[in-house]
């Protein structure tokens, strides 16, 4: 029971990470498109995520920490198994963080240009690679009976996982564009809406393709149902775009991402990491779980602190709720 609760909690943390960092990645990747004209526009674009991106990234650290604490074998098998993919993710996250923080402190235009490159690289690459890594987890990795992953880096680049990466990349960039429309006015918002319109059809197609493939791989009515809801949410985002309802459009893309990630965990259950080719070697949730005492303690910690964290994180979004403007309106 506790093991299931923690499986759900880990899934929730990954959902939170993808939904929140998803738009950070998207906004970063769109910097040269939406902020193409001048420095004022670029500042406005980055200003939308400036106060919040770092706290959004903590969702990743908490998801990793929760896996380590509640399912040590899952953390150990997956992180050593997806070794080089994670290494690339780490490199790009480091570059992104430093570029975001140093851009405003750079004293030359060349310095700022380097930061811009770092931001685009560090936004786009994780958006792609997290999809590749997570869908590989759903697909399964080759494992020995004691759950040591033997798949290599190039095994991770299979068609299903590549589609997974393309899908998360498209969804994150779309989500970023929608977030920008919600957080800005004037010219920047107009450009973001254009990008949104361009991205919705391929995002819908990729999501539908991935959902179908996941159902084919792992089966299950529930996976199909959650995936269908994800597609419906994305459809809702499209409808909201037509009606210029920025808030609803954002809810739509956030919902689509959340439900897609949820569908992966539904597909996994009751495994934490399926073994490719040898189902009997699969790592189940109960194989992977920590002892009852640890799970009980961690449950108390989660119950006590999660509401507090959600409270102040929500407050910080409220403080920075104002829409930002670019060069067309900035005095």
């Amino acid at each position: 029971m506790l093991e299931e609760f923690w499986f759900v909690l880990v899934a929730v943390l990954w959902v939170g990470f993808f939904v929140l960092e998803g738009f950070d990645f998207g906004v970063a990747a769109l910097l040269p498109v939406i902020g193409r004209d001048n420095e004022t526009d670029r500042r406005a674009v980055l200003g939308t995520i400036g106060p919040v991106w770092d706290a959004n990234e903590v969702w990743l650290l908490t998801a990793g920490g929760a896996m380590f604490a509640a399912f040590p074998e899952w953390y150990a098998s997956l992180f050593s198994g997806a070794y080089l993919a994670l290494f690339l993710i780490l490199l790009s996250l480091i570059v992104r963080g430093v570029s975001l923080e140093y851009r405003g402190k750079a004293t030359t235009a060349a310095g700022r240009a380097w930061c811009d490159r770092g931001i685009v690289f560090g936004g786009a690459l994780p958006a792609l690679l997290f999809g590749v890594a997570c869908t590989n987890m759903v697909r399964g990795l080759e494992m020995t009976p004691d759950h040591q992953v033997t798949s290599g880096f190039f095994d991770l680049l299979n068609p299903y996982a590549l589609l997974g990466g393309v899908t998360t990349a498209l969804l994150c960039v779309l989500h970023g564009a929608v977030f920008l429309s919600l957080k800005t006015r004037g010219e920047i918002r107009a450009r973001s809406r254009q990008v949104t319109r361009v991205l919705i059809p391929p995002a819908l197609a990729a999501l539908a393709g991935l959902a179908g493939w996941t159902v084919a791989l792992r089966g299950g009515v529930l996976v199909a149902a959650v995936s269908a809801l994800a597609l419906a949410a994305l459809g809702g985002a499209a409808a909201a775009w037509f009606n210029e309802r920025d808030g609803w459009a954002f809810a739509g893309t956030a919902g689509a991402i959340a439900l897609m990630v949820a569908s992966w965990f539904v597909a996994l259950y009751p495994n934490a990491l399926p073994a490719l080719g040898a189902p009997e070697n699969s790592l189940t949730i109960s194989d992977a779980a920590s002892g009852h005492y640890t799970l009980t303690i961690m449950t108390w910690v989660a119950v006590l602190f999660t509401p507090v964290v959600l409270g102040y994180q929500a407050w910080s979004y409220w403080v920075f709720r104002r829409r930002l403007v670019g060069s067309d309106e900035a005095g």
């Binding site: 706290a55 903590v58 650290l61 908490t62 990793g64 920490g65 929760a66 380590f68 604490a69 509640a70 399912f71 040590p72 074998e73 953390y75 150990a76 920590s290 002892g291 640890t294 303690i297 961690m298 910690v301 989660a302 602190f305 999660t306 964290v309 102040y312 994180q313």
Partner: peptide
């Protein structure tokens, strides 16, 4: 060690890093 070493790391993320 995950059972013992993981909890302080998870608590660090949840209680300290978010703050």
């Amino acid at each position: 060690v995950g059972d013992v070493f993981g909890p302080p790391l998870a608590m660090e993320a949840l209680i300290a890093f978010f703050l």
